[in-house]
């Protein structure tokens, strides 16, 4: 049976953005998650209704 181990997420090195860090991890081959992969939101099934104008604008 595989050993279950709790690994805390390490802090990114100072001054390195998350985007650059993700790219570095991807290019190193340490992770199989590609750089561009972001959490995709589910597609909307209904059409987006028109944004309502605020009450302040309507009063004018």
């Amino acid at each position: 049976m595989a050993v279950k181990k709790k690994v805390n997420k390490p802090k990114a090195p100072k001054g390195i953005s998350k985007k650059v860090l993700r790219k570095a991890l991807s290019e190193s081959g340490w992770t199989t998650i590609p750089v561009s992969s972001k959490k995709k939101t589910a597609k909307r099934k209904t059409t987006i209704s028109k944004k309502k104008t605020s009450t302040a604008k309507r009063k004018r």
Partner: peptide, 13 residues
Amino acid sequence: AFKKGLPAFCKTI
């Protein structure tokens, strides 16, 4: 794997 990927990791950052 760490040793292999370290140069590429370091180069990016």
